[in-house]
Computed example of a mutant assay.
Amino acid sequence: MENAELIDRYLDLILEENKTTNLTRIDSKEKARILHIEDSLVALPEVNRAPEGLYGDLGTGGGFPGFPIAVETGRKAILVDSVKKKTAIVERCVDKLGMSDRISTFSGRIEDLAREMPGKFSVLTARALSQLPSLLELASPLLKKGGLFVCYKGEASPEEEEAAKKVAKKVGMTLVSKRSLILSDGETHREIFLYEKTGKPTVKLPRRVGMAQHKPLID
C-alpha cells in the first residue's frame, strides 16, 4: 500500500471511531484531510533534518501528526498521550493496518516516559499541545544530543517566544528555525518551531508531573 493510501485509510478508521469516542472535533473527511493529514505533514522538512532513530509524538490525541509522520519517514515511532482511551483506539487502528511492528503507543504522562526512556529519541513532535516553555522542558530529557523537537503552533505571542528563549537555555535546547504558513484551506495559520538538543540542562529533568505547565522555568 502506498503511503498516501495508508494514511488516508488510517484517517477513515479514526473518523469511524470518532462517532463513538471524542477524538477530534472534525467529522468531515474533506476538512480532516486538510486539518489532520496536510497539517501533520507540513513539518516533514524539519523532521527529516533529524538524525536517524526513534520518533515520538507528544500529546498525539487521535494519532496526528504522529501516524502520518511515522509512515512518511519510515521511522519507528511511539505515539504518546495521557488519555488511555485515545491510545487504545490509536493502537487498534495501527494494528488493523498492520503497522504495529513499527508504530506503538505510550499511555501516560510525558515526564514518566522521560524516566523510562531518557535520551532515547532522535526527533519529537508536538502539535497545539501546550505553551513553548512547557514543551521545551518536557521534550529535553527525552531527546539525545543533536535530536530535534518540532513544535506546531497556531500563533505564538512575542511573550511566549521570549519565555521560550529563557527556558531553552536552561534545558539545553536551541532554536534552529521558525517558519509560518497557511494551509490549503486558505485560512488555517501554522507556525513551525524547530529546536535542537545542544547541551545538558542546568536543572534536573524531568521534574514532577505537571510542574512544566504550572511552574515553568522562566525566572
Rank of each mutant, 00 (worst) to 15 (best):
S134K: 01
T21P: 01
D185T: 13
D8K: 14
D57M: 07
L183W: 09
I110N: 00
G63I: 12
D8I: 13
A128T: 09
E17R: 10
G59P: 03
F149V: 11
S28W: 07
V83N: 11
S130A: 15
E159P: 00
K29L: 15
L23T: 08
K96S: 05
K144R: 15
K85R: 14
Q131M: 11
P216Q: 05
S104T: 14
L58S: 02
F64G: 11
L23E: 04
K29I: 14
M173G: 10
A4P: 08
G74V: 14
E52W: 03
V80G: 01
R25V: 14
G56D: 02
E116F: 00
E162C: 10
E52R: 08
I89K: 02
S100R: 00
L41C: 12
L11T: 14
G74K: 10
D81P: 07
G154A: 15
A164E: 03
A156L: 07
R179H: 11
G59R: 01
F149T: 06
F149L: 10
R33W: 00
T188M: 13
E159D: 12
C93F: 04
R207P: 01
S180F: 03
F193I: 07
L181M: 13
N22T: 12
E160P: 04
P133Y: 01
A50D: 05
E160T: 10
D185M: 09
L148Q: 07
L97P: 00
V176C: 03
S104P: 02
Y10K: 10
G61N: 09
S130Y: 01
P45R: 03
K76Y: 10
N22E: 07
K84I: 06
T125A: 08
C151D: 04
F106N: 00
V71R: 01
R115K: 13
D219A: 13
K85M: 08
D219L: 11
T20R: 15
A70V: 06
G210I: 09
K197N: 09
I69F: 06
E52Q: 12
E116H: 01
L148R: 09
L217C: 05
K170C: 12
G59V: 04
R33M: 10
H214R: 14
P206W: 00
P158I: 14
K153S: 11
A163D: 14
M99E: 13
N48K: 14
V80P: 01
I14L: 14
I69P: 03
P118Q: 04
E52K: 11
R190K: 15
A4M: 13
E111G: 00
Y152L: 12
R33L: 09
A50S: 07
